[in-house]
């Protein structure tokens, strides 16, 4: 390993390491913590006006029509169903769903103009319920896939509210869903 022509003195090394540590600490506690996390131990965040950066915008206006929808979906074991919404980019909705038994679910979305079958998945788990908010990252269809992974028939109750323009069953492999069209108006392929 090549070296400095003249190695700095021990004192110089210690001073510079100390200065480095103090500088980093000053930046961390003085600016980064106030701006990123709203933690302001020395009041510098307030002084420099950094605190506002750490606060989420509490209010966001949205266009489009506000609507509320509910659905009850029944699934025998191993059956699955998809439920989709059409949202424009930036539009959001609040959701809550509860199933009477265990389901595996996947929340995914397909942008308009994407190749057939393409989807981006945002959340996939086994659960009996889900509650939260969703803001569409792009214009397209967005929604859940639920599959009954238990041994009993279940009912899933879904309620959503938000700025979407449609809400309906996408497709299904389940006895209870016949002669459906999907959200794009095509006949739903019934998977036996």
């Amino acid at each position: 390993m090549p070296e400095l022509p003249t190695l700095p003195s021990r004192r110089k090394v210690l001073v510079s390491t100390g200065v480095a540590l103090l500088t980093a600490a000053a930046l961390l506690f003085g600016a980064i913590l106030p701006a990123e996390y709203g933690i302001d131990p020395f009041g510098t965040g307030r002084l420099l006006g950094l605190l506002a950066l750490g606060q989420a915008q509490p209010f966001g206006a949205e266009g489009g029509e506000y609507r509320v929808d509910s659905a009850e979906l029944s699934l025998y074991p191993a059956e699955w169903v998809e439920y989709f919404y059409r949202l424009d980019e930036g539009s959001s909705m609040v959701f809550t769903w509860d199933a009477t038994g265990p389901v595996t679910y996947n929340f995914h979305a397909s942008p308009d103009g994407a190749p057939a079958g393409y989807a981006e998945s945002f959340d996939a788990q086994d659960s009996e319920q889900g509650h939260g908010t969703y803001t569409a990252p792009f214009t397209g269809i967005h929604g859940w896939y639920w599959e009954n992974v238990g041994t009993e028939e279940i009912t899933l109750t879904l309620t959503t509210a938000g700025f979407y323009t449609s809400a309906e069953i996408g497709r299904a492999r389940a006895a209870g869903y016949k002669d459906l069209t999907d959200i794009r108006g095509n006949p739903v392929p019934r998977v036996p």
């Binding site: 699955w80 995914h108 397909s110 057939a116 989807a119 981006e120 998945s121 599959e147 996408g170 998977v191």
Partner: peptide, 20 residues
């Protein structure tokens, strides 16, 4: 990133087969 395509499993196939 908050958004990313990822592979998924068999029965979800319907929708996401192309990224499986």
């Amino acid at each position: 990133a908050a958004v990313h395509a990822h592979p998924m499993e068999g029965s979800n196939a319907g929708f996401v087969q192309s990224v499986d």
